[in-house]
């Protein structure tokens, strides 16, 4: 059986302080090792294989019973991680303020799809040490130019100012110059997205 020395300090605890001792399973009987090279004590802070004993040294034989398909398996499955974000079952009310997407919104010529976490994909991008704020509406399907016009009109009425936007048809997003995140989220909820 080949012996592989992972590092100089592996298994050093066996011969710290014991310079004359036959080593564990080392076929060369430690001929390559010198006591000075193992003067650095093994760090006990990290758990490593060198700190663990060999299986052949364990003599204990415990009685145990193997329970296949145990009734407690439900408890185990409870904390195994989920593969994906779960779908939301419809409820009467959502006290936290989450609003479910409506079916009627699919009839509109444009559409904003929800993201993986079932939230509306409107984000605020801040750059240049807080001087530039851009509201980004992502995941837009359908007639993006129509939506752009509607948004501009809506914001002009609401905020009494002209709002600059940037439409990226291929990227399926609209950038609105300024911080209109909450206003646009309310607009999107009103539309039913």
């Amino acid at each position: 059986m080949a012996t592989v020395w992972r590092s100089q300090y592996a298994f050093a605890r066996f011969f710290v302080g014991k310079t004359v001792r036959i080593l564990n399973n080392a076929s060369d009987l430690g001929a390559r090792l010198k006591p000075e090279s193992i003067s650095i004590p093994l760090s006990r802070k990290y758990s490593n294989y060198a700190a663990s004993p060999f299986v052949s040294k364990i003599q204990e034989q415990y009685e145990f019973e193997i329970v296949k398909n145990p009734p407690e398996w439900g408890y185990v499955e409870r904390f195994l991680p989920l593969e994906t974000v779960p779908q939301i079952k419809p409820k009467e009310s959502y006290p936290s303020g989450w609003i479910a997407p409506k079916e009627e919104a699919k009839n509109l010529p444009y559409y904003i799809a929800r993201n993986k976490n079932h939230q509306i994909p409107i984000y605020l991008e801040i750059g240049y040490r807080g001087q530039r704020k851009i509201t980004k509406i992502k995941r837009i399907e359908g007639d993006i130019w129509l939506m752009n016009d509607l948004i501009k009109k809506y914001l002009k009425n609401k905020c009494n100012r002209y709002v600059e936007t940037r439409v990226h048809e291929m990227g399926k997003f609209i950038d609105v110059k300024g911080d209109y995140v909450n206003i646009l989220i309310d607009w999107a909820h009103a539309q039913g997205f």
Partner: peptide, 13 residues
């Protein structure tokens, strides 16, 4: 087959 001393330890097994 165990290829290293680590493969013989309790922790690995």
């Amino acid at each position: 087959e165990p290829k290293s001393l680590a493969h013989l330890t309790v922790k690995y097994n």
